[in-house]
Design a protein around this nucleic acid. Structure first.
Length: 105
DNA sequence: GGCGTGACCCCAT
DNA sequence: TATGGGGCCACGC
């Protein structure tokens, strides 16, 4: 029953591309969007992603409001988020609920 | 074919 | 509020 031809990690990338600018999402929400609890697999997919420039993986943060990590560097991720309009302080997102983007409404 | 690891999350103290 | 421990899934070797 392969509903999709793409791998799990590919689906994560597709979801990331659906995230509007100035918004962020969490690994847990992505996993939920895929109907799974593989929060870990989602992060692994980002870490192994081959095209960080094609995928806005910098818009993905942890559920506790922390920035998490980034392939190009956490600092770079924070810079990008701030550049997008997301307020970040001490590696933590301010107004997290406000910039939080949900796939399933 | 099986095992370890990871850009995690949740709960308890 | 901060810290520690356990559990979850998919991928790579």
């Amino acid at each position: 029953m392969d509903s999709n031809n793409k791998s799990f990690n590919d689906r994560c990338y597709e979801l990331l591309k659906l995230i509007p600018k100035g918004k962020v999402t969490t690994y847990g929400e992505i996993a939920k969007a895929l109907n799974t609890k593989a929060f870990r697999a989602v992060g692994s997919a980002m870490a192994k992603n081959k095209k960080p420039l094609v995928i806005p993986c910098h818009r993905v943060i942890k559920s506790n409001g922390d920035i998490g990590n980034y392939a190009l560097g956490n600092d770079k991720k924070i810079e990008l988020l701030i550049n997008e309009g997301v307020k970040v302080k001490n590696g933590r997102v301010k107004e997290f609920s406000k910039v939080f983007h949900r796939f399933t409404v």
